[in-house]
Nucleic acid binder design. Structure first.
Lengths: 223, 223
DNA sequence: TTATTTGAACTGACTGGTCAGTTTGGTTAG
DNA sequence: CTAACCAAACTGACCAGTCAGTTCAAATAA
C-alpha cells in the first residue's frame, strides 16, 4: 500500500507515460501469466519492461494496483474483440426485430474471437483463471465487475439466439453463459498447453456443441 | 529440495504418520485453495494442521513435494467419484455390446458427481485451475499425468455415448472432453464464488447441453 | 512385571536469503 | 521548467529449509 507520489495526472496523459505503462503492461502480462502474481517480483517486472523500479511505483503506486489495472486492460481488449465480431452490431431494441444475420453464426464468430484472444494473450487467460476464484482476493471487486462486463456481452449474444430459435427453457441462462465463458478459457488454455495440434476451428466446433444442444431441433432462424 | 531425513517408511506406514499426513493434506488444501500455492507459508500450513514445521519437512521433504502429493490425493478422490457414478461399470468390451443403462444418463450422473466434488473440495478445484496451465511449472509432469487420468475416465463415458447414439463426427472427441472437463470446474467454482443460489441440477443441465448438442437429433439409445 | 533401549516421529529456534516498498539525488524529454 | 524517469542504496518483514534436541510407544531385557 502506498499513498503514492504525485502520480501521473489522470487526464490527458502525455505520450511518454503512455508508452511506459504499455511496456509495463506487456512485461507484467508475460511474467505474471507464467509464474503467477505472487511468483513475480516488482524488480523483475521493471527489468523486463526496461524501466526502473521507481517508475513502477511512480505510475502504479503498488504491485497490487498494477495487477488490477492489468486485468482491466486485458478485459477491455477482450470485450472489444467480442463486440466487433461479425453479427454483434444489432442489439435487443424491441422484441424480435429482424436483424441481419443468423445469431448462431454470430455466436460462432464470437467464440472464435474469444479463442483467438486466448491464443494472442495466453498469459492474460492464465492470470484470469489463476486469480479469479480466490475467495479473499485483493482483486475480488475488480474481478466481479470485469466478469460481469464480459458475461453481459455473451448474454446479449445468447439472448439473440433465444429470440431467433426455440430454446430449451429448462437450461438456466446464467449457467449456460458461465459454461460457455469458462469453456472458452479452458479450451483455449488447454490447446496452448497440452494440445497445440488442435486447430482453432476444432475448438470452436466443440464449444458450439453447447449452443446446438441449447436450441431445440430443426435448423432455420426466426423460430 | 531435501535429500530427506530418514523419512517415513514407505511400506506399512504407522498410524501416527498417516494421521499427520491427512491433517497436513486437509490444512494445505484449505489454505492453498484460498490464497494459492505461493501465497501460503509452510509455517501456516503446519500451524493449521496443529503440527510443527519440522514435521512437514519430515513427511514431505519440501513444500513443492507436499503440493504434488496433495494434487495426487485430490485426483484419486475425484477419479473414484467419477468411476462410482451409476452407469460407469460397463466398459467398451467389443463394439456395441448391450449394456445396462442409457449412456446419456450415465454421463449426467458423472457430471453430477463432478459438481458434487467441486462443492465438497472447492479448494482443490481452485488449486487445480490456478496451477494447471502454468508453463514452466514445478508440477508440470504431475499435472500432465493426472489430467490424462481424469480425461480417460471422461473419455470412456463419451465413448459409450458415441456407441449408443449417432453423434456429430465433426466435433473432435478430445476437444469435447476438454470442454466438458473444464466446464465442470468453471461452473462449479463460479457457482461457489459468484452464484451460490444456482442449484446443482441447473448446473448439470447447463453442462449437459454439451452432450445434447453432440448427439444428432432424435432421442432413443442404441442408434 | 518392571526397567531399559531404540528409533521413528516430532519440535521450534535459527539461518541465509528474498522481496515490497521507500528514499534520495540526480537526469531527460517535452 | 517540470513531469517523468533513473539508479542504487536501504528498511523491515517474511519465509523456505535446517538441525540439534525431545517425546513416546513398542521392543527387549532383567
Amino acid at each position: 500500500m502506498n499513498a503514492g507520489p504525485p502520480g501521473p495526472v489522470r487526464t490527458l496523459r502525455p505520450a511518454r507515460t503512455t508508452a511506459t505503462r504499455q511496456k509495463l503492461f506487456d512485461a507484467s502480462m508475460e511474467l505474471i501469466g507464467e509464474r503467477g502474481a505472487a511468483g513475480v517480483t516488482v524488480d523483475e517486472i521493471a527489468a523486463a519492461a526496461g524501466v526502473s523500479k521507481g517508475t513502477v511505483y511512480y505510475n502504479f503506486g503498488s504491485k497490487s494496483e498494477l495487477i488490477a489495472q492489468l486485468l482491466r486492460h486485458g478485459v477491455d481488449i477482450l470485450k472489444a474483440r467480442l463486440q466487433e465480431a461479425p453479427g454483434q452490431e444489432a442489439a435487443a431494441q424491441g422484441a424480435a426485430t429482424a436483424v441481419s444475420g443468423d445469431p448462431l453464426l454470430a455466436m460462432e464468430a464470437m467464440i472464435g474471437q474469444a479463442l483467438d484472444f486466448m491464443s494472442e494473450y495466453p498469459s492474460f487467460a492464465r492470470l484470469w483463471v489463476s486469480e479469479n476464484w480466490r475467495t479473499p482476493s485483493e482483486w475480488q471487486g475488480t474481478f466481479a465487475v470485469l466478469r460481469g462486463e464480459l458475461l453481459a456481452v455473451i448474454g446479449e449474444a445468447v439472448e439473440r439466439v433465444a429470440q431467433a430459435y426455440p430454446v430449451d427453457s429448462t437450461v438456466p441462462r446464467g449457467s449456460l453463459e458461465t459454461a460457455i465463458f469458462g469453456a472458452c478459457f479452458v479450451v483455449g488454455l488447454d490447446r496452448q498447453t497440452y494440445h497445440p495440434e488442435r486447430t482453432r476451428d476444432q475448438s470452436v466446433a466443440a464449444i458450439m456443441a453447447f449452443m446446438r444442444g441449447y436450441v431445440l431441433q430443426q435448423p432455420g432462424p426466426r423460430g
